[in-house]
Every structure is written in structure tokens, then in C-alpha cells.
Design a protein around this nucleic acid. Structure first.
Lengths: 348, 348
DNA sequence: CTGAAAGCGCTTACAG
DNA sequence: CTGAAAGCGCTTACAG
């Protein structure tokens, strides 16, 4: 049986003070003499008293909870990257005394889904939210920001939209692509293709733009028929590679917009008896947890998610607590991780 | 800028009714005539009104939030299984209109950690919690249950402790071990060892007991020096196998208390130039997401986590809403998944 | 069918 | 330094 709750007035009575004073010691007001604080703390501890959160929030305190919204059609549970993202946000929030309410959004365009996400904010269930996997312009997020809720969104860039309650973090895809293309070019590849990601997402676009830019820098031609569209999932990589392989003339190397795409693409090759990197070199993006144990181990552009998420979460919480703060751009760095999926071309 | 909140009294004014009536339509009371409901709903929708959660909770409603507590010293972020567990709980809770607050507990014995977990319950931040990865007898959980909070714990069996606010789910390790041992015995193995899991956890114990029982059933001897202690992690598997290999006489097959242990054990073998299953057959437990792509693909006892978690989450929520309910035991089924890590012995 | 009112448990000006 | 009191936004007996 649940014991009847003890509340602040009971604590006050027991300590021989008023509720005001109990509240003051709980909230660490400075104008409470040590002796009084002592006395009150003793009964608080003795009775295992913790202030009721709803009452505190109703009286004006924060909920100290943030929402984590993972937008993904249906791969969330199977992708290891997701787990790392979730755990990262939780641990960084936790370090600042915040809790996280994790939500999975299958389809941000569905009106019921939209309603229920908005409800979480309007209900004041959370103080703010972080969004991962959204399109660059996502109406749901824009609505929330217009309403004044604070949102931290990963992989977004909306020129002119620098509301104080919008926090964004980005990937440095320009540098990433330079790293990838230069590595391939240094291996003497000149025929390089790309398996693109979802173009509705900022990264889909900036990766392709970065690719074009990096190719140009090295004086290499981008062949449109070697730029295959897709989304960021394995199945898409499989299909993209299948399409690519139907062509009469093939590139000697491919950059995949992420590692999942590369996994799918390599499977498509294996099924046709093709070798990586023997027949085609492939480089991915992310450094997915599976990449190092993949066969062949995947050469990739590692993205520093943990550092980015830490900054994003921290900035979100600071904004919640202090309102607008001066903010520096948050960007995830890229590094080249050389493994086994790329090999040099011997010029004929 | 955040707009000033609209509240129920404002809605009432706009709809020309009292707050009581607004509340009645929101809470779907039956005694509201359709016309009145209509009228109120229209202004609720027009103004995008959602009742303030804290006020509702303070007035006696549930928070509709459950806590998910993952207890693990430091492997949470790297283990794919975790991700599946988290996503499963979230989706099942979500289907019932509940949210989940995910927490990572590094060390349940640490007093600060304990305090902060308890605080979540006492604060009434959640209506109940699910615990995964705890020792069979975990003081923190026992305290919470003693206080009357409802807790759903995975992998627990405490005879005599059938409080109405305790919900447990278990693994059918007896059957699982029979499956594993019989499979190995059918392959003509008679010298079978075991790499044990954490004995503080119920599964650690029941797996070993199940192993002993299954061996006996097949008339096979359990050799104590082939039962290596460990916990449920990869590193432990590596060390256990290293220890095993130091022995002069070796088994021909090994059952690992889970797949992670098997991965570590296989790595230890590879480093010594030993083959799986050539030199030693290994079977794991769980059917970890990596098992099928492991080299060699791991033969394992698949555990039906999704079904178990669904039942557990559903039962937890029903208990929260309806108090005690008649409950059936929740147990996760086991199936043998044959892949490449075990081979038959040719009797000499 | 519906409104007035009490109550949920806190915090924070306000006054002293 | 400290208490009395108002207020946060809801829900739910109670009375009609």
C-alpha cells in the first residue's frame, strides 16, 4: 500500500517553521540561517520528502525534461547509430540535471502524429526538444518554433531564420567530402560516383554539393549518371548500386552518403560476384558501429556525433534556463578513417 | 516570443460555459450534450488549447509517463540490444498513450544514483518504472516497491514477494539451455563447457542451472573447470576463453551465456589462431543483432524480447491505471537459430 | 445537464 | 530572517 504522501506543510509543522521557509531551504535561498536550514533538512531527510513536481511546475518552475524526437520511417530500432544518439543526449542532459522523454516519429506529415507532438509541448510536459532526422524545412518544427517553444534541430540551415528559440547543429559535409574525394583521387581514381542520401534533408544536399565542389577542386568531372538518388538507408544503397551496375560504363570508386548506404551497395555487389575494393572502391560517411567489423571493413568519414550532441544538448538547456544566450555555431567535425574498402588504381 | 497561455477559464468564457463544462468535455464525460460539446470543442481547436499537464496531475490525473531504467556499468551505448529494448518499450507505451523517460544507471549501489532514481518516483515524475539489467535482489528496487511504487522488473524471481505493485518478466532459460545442449549433443559433442554470465542476475544463475540440468538429462558430465565465471559482456567472454584455453584438456563445445560473451570468446580464439567451429563449437544466447553478420555467423538461442517487453509494458500500464489486475507470468520464449559456429564431432 | 467552490502542493512577492 | 496569502491551472464531488 502506498503511504499517504507527506507534503511541505507537514514538513513545516514537523520542523516548526512555515511552508515558506521549507520552500526556501529546498530552493536554496540565501536568506535562511544555517540553523534553520539544518533543522528543516533533518526532517526532510527523515521523512524522505521530495517536493511534488507538478506542484512546483504549476508554481512556475521548469519541468527539467527535454523531448528527444527521432524522425525515421521505420529503421530506428535496427540502427545502431540511433542508440548512440539516444544515450548521448540522455547522458548529457542528465549531467545538467535534466531528463529526456524519447519519442519516435514515423511520419512527421501525419496529422495525428503532429498533433501529439505538439501536445507534448503545449501540455508543458517538456521545456524544449531536440529533433534528429528531420527534413531541412519541417512544418511541424516550424510551427513549434513559431509558437515560441525552444527547439534544437540537428542538420538544419534556414537562412534568415535565427529566432532566439531555434538552435541548430550541422555536419561539416564540405570538409567531409573533400576528405573522401581527395583520398580517392590520391588513390588515382578519376571516375568517381556518388550514392546520394535524402535530398529533403540538409545533409543530403550538402553532401552532394560538397562532392561536386571537391571533384571540381581536383579537376575531376562529375558524371550525372553516376550520381544515384536514394535515402540514407541500406535498402536504398542496395537499389542504388543495382541501378548503377546496369550502366555500360562504371566508375572505379563510389562515395556513399552514409555507411548504411555503403552496406547495402556492397551487398548488391557481392550478390553479383563483384569485389570491394577489387572491382570498385567504396567510402562511406558516419563511421557506423558496424563499419569496422563489416566485410570488407569500411573506409569512411567519421562524424563526431558525441561532441555535437553534447554541445547541442547543453545549449538547449542553457537556452531553456537563461533565455537567449550568445551562441556559436555547432558543427560536427569529420575525419578520414582508412580501412579496407578502397584500393589504389594502377594507371593503365 | 511565447504567446500568453490560454487556459480553461478563457476557453470557458469564449465558449460561454463554465470551467467545469470545459473540463467535462476534455475528459469525455458522458453527461455533456452533443451541442455543448461541439461548441466547446470548436473553441478548443480554434485556440489550440491543450490542458496544462501539471495542473491536471496536481488535480489527480496520472502523468502518463513511465520510467525506463537501464542498469549497466558502461556498455549501454555500445550495445545494439539496448537500442532494441528502448525502442520496444517506447513504442508499446506510446500505443497506450504513455511516454517514457529513459534513464541510465551506471551503478545502482551508488547512493547519489539511488537518491536521484528515487526522486523521480517521489516527485511523481512518473507513474511507474521498468527496470532492465538489475541484480535479482536490488535494494533500490525493493525500496521503491516497499514504498508502493509500481515497478516492472525484467529477469527477477523473489519467492514470496508477490506484492501487487511488483511485475516481473522472465527468460525461459531452462528450455533455452535444453535447446542448446541438445543441439550440441546431437552433434555428438560430449565435452561441453560453459562461459557463465553475472551470477547476481537471475539469468546468470538460471542459465547455469539450466545447463547443468540439460547436461544431466543427456547423461553428460559437467566439468567444473569448464564452467568459467564472468559477466554478460564481450570483454568477460574474451577473458573467460583466455582462461579456458590455458587448461590442458579442453571441451569440444562451449555454450556462452549470451552472444556478447561469445563474440569476446571467439576473438580470443582467433588471436591464438584457433578456428570456430573447427577447433571448438560455440553457441550463444539472445540472437544479438550482430550475430548473423559475425564471422562465423553465430548459432544461438534467440530470445523473444519484443513480445516480453510488450507484455511487460502493457501490464505495467494496466496496473498503473487499474490497480492490481490478475496477471499471468510473463516469460520470453527461446528458439534455436542454427548458423555457422557449431559443427558435428566425428566420433573417433 | 451545469455552475460555484474546494482542493491538489508548491513558490514567491509582500509585509513585517 | 520569516510568515500569511495569493496564485499557478486543472478536476471533481456537491448542489441544484
Amino acid at each position: 500500500m502506498k503511504k499517504t504522501e507527506i507534503n511541505s506543510i507537514e514538513i513545516a509543522r514537523l520542523a516548526g517553521v512555515s511552508r515558506s521557509t521549507v520552500s526556501r531551504v529546498i530552493n536554496n535561498y540565501t536568506n535562511v540561517p544555517p540553523a534553520t536550514r539544518e533543522k528543516v533538512m533533518r526532517v526532510i531527510e527523515a521523512y524522505n520528502y521530495y517536493p511534488n513536481l507538478s506542484a512546483q511546475v504549476l508554481a512556475g518552475k521548469k519541468t527539467r525534461t527535454i523531448g528527444l524526437f527521432l524522425i525515421d520511417a521505420g529503421h530506428v530500432s535496427s540502427d545502431m547509430l540511433t542508440n548512440m544518439l539516444i544515450v548521448n543526449v540522455i547522458e548529457h542532459a542528465s549531467a545538467l540535471g535534466y531528463y529526456v522523454l524519447t519519442n519516435i516519429i514515423r511520419n512527421p506529415s501525419d496529422s495525428d502524429t503532429c498533433r501529439s507532438v505538439k501536445e507534448i509541448f503545449y501540455q508543458r510536459r517538456i521545456d524544449g526538444g531536440v529533433f534528429i532526422g528531420a527534413a531541412n524545412h519541417e512544418p511541424l518544427i516550424e510551427d513549434l518554433i513559431a509558437e515560441g517553444f525552444v527547439a534544437a534541430v540537428v542538420d538544419q540551415e534556414l537562412p534568415g531564420h535565427d529566432e532566439p528559440n531555434r538552435i541548430t547543429a550541422n555536419y561539416d559535409n564540405q570538409t567531409g567530402m573533400e576528405l573522401a574525394v581527395n583520398y580517392l583521387a590520391d588513390l588515382h581514381h578519376t571516375s568517381i560516383g556518388i550514392l546520394n542520401g535524402d535530398m529533403k534533408r540538409l545533409s543530403g544536399r550538402t553532401k552532394y554539393e560538397g562532392f561536386q565542389h571537391a571533384m571540381k577542386q581536383r579537376g575531376l568531372a562529375v558524371r550525372e549518371q553516376w550520381a544515384i538518388p536514394g535515402d540514407f538507408h541500406k535498402e536504398s544503397g542496395y537499389q542504388a548500386m543495382t541501378r548503377l551496375l546496369e550502366q555500360s560504363e562504371l566508375p572505379t570508386a563510389i562515395v556513399a552518403a552514409n555507411d548504411s548506404i555503403a552496406f547495402g551497395a556492397i551487398r548488391a555487389m557481392k550478390e553479383r560476384g563483384l569485389q570491394v575494393p577489387g572491382d570498385l572502391s567504396i567510402i562511406g560517411f558516419d563511421d557506423h558501429a558496424l563499419s569496422s567489423m563489416h566485410q570488407p571493413a569500411l573506409t569512411t568519414i567519421k562524424v563526431d556525433f558525441p561532441a555535437m550532441l553534447q554541445q547541442l544538448t547543453t545549449t538547449l538547456i542553457q537556452t531553456i534556463e537563461n533565455g537567449t544566450i550568445t551562441r556559436e555555431p555547432i558543427v560536427a567535425g569529420s575525419t578520414l578513417i582508412i580501412r579496407q574498402s578502397c584500393s589504389p588504381i594502377t594507371p593503365k
